[in-house]
Design a protein around this nucleic acid. Structure first.
Length: 355
DNA sequence: ACGTGACCGTTTTGATTAAT
DNA sequence: ATTAATCAAAACGGTCACGT
């Protein structure tokens, strides 16, 4: 077993294309290296310059290599000359990059990585929708037209699912297309080399897509509330002046007594509930906030502890009608006061507004 | 074995600075 | 005075470690 591992890692070290993955990775790493890879334009310039050296007039490989390194060094220094929070990270990037660059061959790998892996992924990411309205609005409207309030819980969940599936399909299409294209452009490589490059592409693409997916899922719930407000003709207010919440409040509505209710939409609360609870009574009072209502689609991680702690601090939860958590909370003496079925959501809002 | 809490690294967004 | 470029900060949920 150990020997097998050693064999694999030796093989990796010998294969210069293994760096394709690491270059793509380093270029995107923001915490450590400053996420230079997002700047397609700058990197294109760098690569064009490098290509001129690599393909340029015949000189010794060593000289070409030295020139290439100088170009990278110079262009980066010029581009990031302004002293900012990023400066240190970019310096570190160059240092670590130069460790990996051993000869002219590595420069070629770098160019290919940028041109055929990094930038295509950048472009593809932009083309993938970051909201899922187009997949969901029509269906949602059809449901509500037919079933009204009863469809509320269904619509919210359906939005979640339909959006995810629609977007996953879009992602899938992109990745297949990109893969095919990349395979074409590296068809001269050996099978093993080509495996290395293609998997680097897929692995890195998926990592970044995954992050994008999170934001999209979160955003889609905001979309569904906007849609619902519009559909049911509910008037929303602007946020109170100078109010700084630790958690995002998507909508504000005004009660009959002129106090506000904040509406927060999240797919889950995760650990962010601690931020929520830091907004205490006096803060709420100061801004005349009566309660904060949470619309949550995935509630399995709402422990009783979370619910009670927030519940006694003027937070109210609307959960999917068929959920296990809702069921148990409604049978609980304390929790039933601030845990409610989603189908009631619109009805409750109208009641508080007195319309 | 199971449920819960927290970490993590990227994208997105909103604000600030530079360029035209 | 606008627009473009740049930066910093917030938000996200999958994943895994930990405690029971």
């Amino acid at each position: 077993m150990l020997q097998k591992h050693r064999a694999i890692s030796e093989e990796m070290n010998q294969n210069p294309w293994e760096n394709a993955y690491w270059f793509a990775r380093m270029l995107i790493n923001g915490d450590k290296y400053g996420a230079i890879g997002r700047q397609s334009k700058f990197l294109t310039e760098v690569c064009i310059a490098l290509q001129q050296i690599v393909e340029g007039p015949a000189q010794s490989k060593d000289i070409k290599f030295e020139l290439s390194k100088n170009i990278i060094q110079n262009l980066f220094e010029k581009r990031f000359s302004r002293k900012t929070a990023k400066t240190e990270r970019i310096k570190l990037f160059l240092e670590d990059l130069f460790v990996k660059l051993k000869d002219i061959c590595d420069i070629k790998v770098f160019i290919l990585t940028v041109q055929n892996i990094l930038i295509p992924i950048n472009v593809a990411l932009e083309s993938i929708p970051n909201d899922d309205k187009i997949y969901t609005e029509e269906v949602a409207k059809a449901y509500l037209d037919r079933l009204g309030n009863d469809a509320l819980s269904t619509v919210v969940q359906l939005w979640d699912n339909a959006g995810v599936i629609g977007c996953l399909n879009a992602e899938r299409g992109c990745i297949v297309q990109g893969f095919a294209h990349l395979r074409q452009s590296i068809r001269h490589m050996s099978e093993h080399e080509s495996d290395t490059v293609l998997t680097a592409y897929v692995q890195e693409f998926e990592r970044r897509l995954g992050q994008k997916r999170k934001g999209r899922a979160g955003g889609s719930l905001e979309d569904v509330t906007s849609f619902l407000f519009k559909y049911f003709n509910i008037k929303a207010e602007n946020k109170p002046d100078h109010f700084q919440a630790d958690i995002e409040i998507d909508k504000w509505i005004l009660r009959r007594d002129k106090w506000l209710i904040g509406i927060s939409c999240k797919r889950t609360l995760r650990e962010r509930w601690k931020q929520v609870s830091s907004a205490h009574h006096d803060v709420l009072n100061k801004f005349k906030i009566w309660q904060v209502w949470h619309l949550i689609t995935y509630d399995e991680d709402l422990s009783d502890d979370k619910l009670t702690l927030l519940g006694i601090q003027r937070h109210v939860f609307y959960l999917p009608d068929n959920s296990r958590r809702l069921e148990s909370a409604r049978n609980h003496l304390g929790m039933k006061d601030y845990v409610r079925p989603m189908s009631q959501f619109i009805h409750d809002i109208k009641k508080e507004q007195g319309t």
